[in-house]
């Protein structure tokens, strides 16, 4: 369960968000420029925020009235930004291990993840030699290796061609069914939202416009941005 109540000053508007969701897979849906990425960055603690409150499973991550601000490294929120942003100077394995400290339990998670995401054959490779889809799988693995409490995915399929998209989607579904950790998935793509979301939060021009089951919410043509 994540609860968010924020005023976020963006150019050219202020994002006002008051929302909570508890699904395993929540899709944050809205047109480009609606402030989706900014909201993800704020949840991850990467963006200074003036007013509001964010809590995750009972832990307060940010509360302006009580002057609480947990730095990103203490939030245990995994973040997969657009185009994966792998560390270019590290191998795939080193990328996966980046957040895994020696001696802590997550070390046991890694083989499982390598299996789940089919990364076994890529471990020695450099990020520059990977395809867009492979990069995204590594970024997913890297984020999951730290056993986060929430995973933030920022348009993970953007920029991939149809064939690559189709290859990545099963991994995302596997991730969802594995119930490893809940995710918040940003997209402006209708089909992805319906396919992957248990729940959809609709963000338009700085406000939450609606929230509900993807089939109910997105079947009305009113909210299609990409078709």
């Amino acid at each position: 369960m994540i609860e968010i109540d924020l005023d976020l000053a963006l150019e050219p508007f202020t994002l006002q968000v008051n929302v909570s969701f508890a699904s395993q897979a929540t899709v944050l849906f809205g047109p480009s420029g609606a402030g989706k990425t900014s909201l993800l960055e704020t949840i991850a603690g990467l963006r200074p925020t003036v007013r509001g409150r964010i809590s995750l499973q009972g832990t307060v991550l940010f509360d302006s009235s009580r002057r609480v601000f947990l730095p990103p490294e203490q939030r245990r929120i995994g973040y997969v930004p657009q185009e994966a942003a792998l560390f270019p100077h590290l191998s795939v394995l080193e990328n996966l291990q980046f957040g895994v400290s020696n001696g802590s339990s997550p070390l046991r998670v890694l083989p499982e993840l390598i299996d789940l995401l089919d990364l076994g054959s890529l471990l020695e490779r450099a990020p520059a030699t990977l395809s867009g889809g492979e990069c995204m799988r590594v970024a997913l693995g890297r984020a999951l290796a730290t056993s986060p409490r929430l995973l933030l995915l920022d348009e993970p399929l953007r920029g991939l061609d149809v064939e690559r998209k189709q290859r990545i989607v099963p991994y995302l579904l596997r991730l969802r069914e594995a119930g490893r950790c809940p995710f918040l998935y940003v997209t402006h793509n209708h089909r992805e939202a319906i396919l992957l979301g248990h729940e959809v939060v609709l963000l338009t021009s700085g406000k939450i416009a609606a929230q509900g089951k993807p089939a109910d919410l997105l079947s009305t043509k009113q909210y299609s941005f990409d078709l």
Binding site: E41, A44, G45, L46, P71, P72, E73, Q74, R75, R76, I77, G78, Y79, P81, A85, F87, P88, F98, G99, S101, R142, A143, T146, P148
Partner: peptide, 15 residues
């Protein structure tokens, strides 16, 4: 340097 690299590194639990 892509500033997101440092951002991601922070979310991975590193100071």
């Amino acid at each position: 340097i892509d500033p997101r690299l440092a951002d991601v590194a922070r979310t991975l639990g590193r100071g």
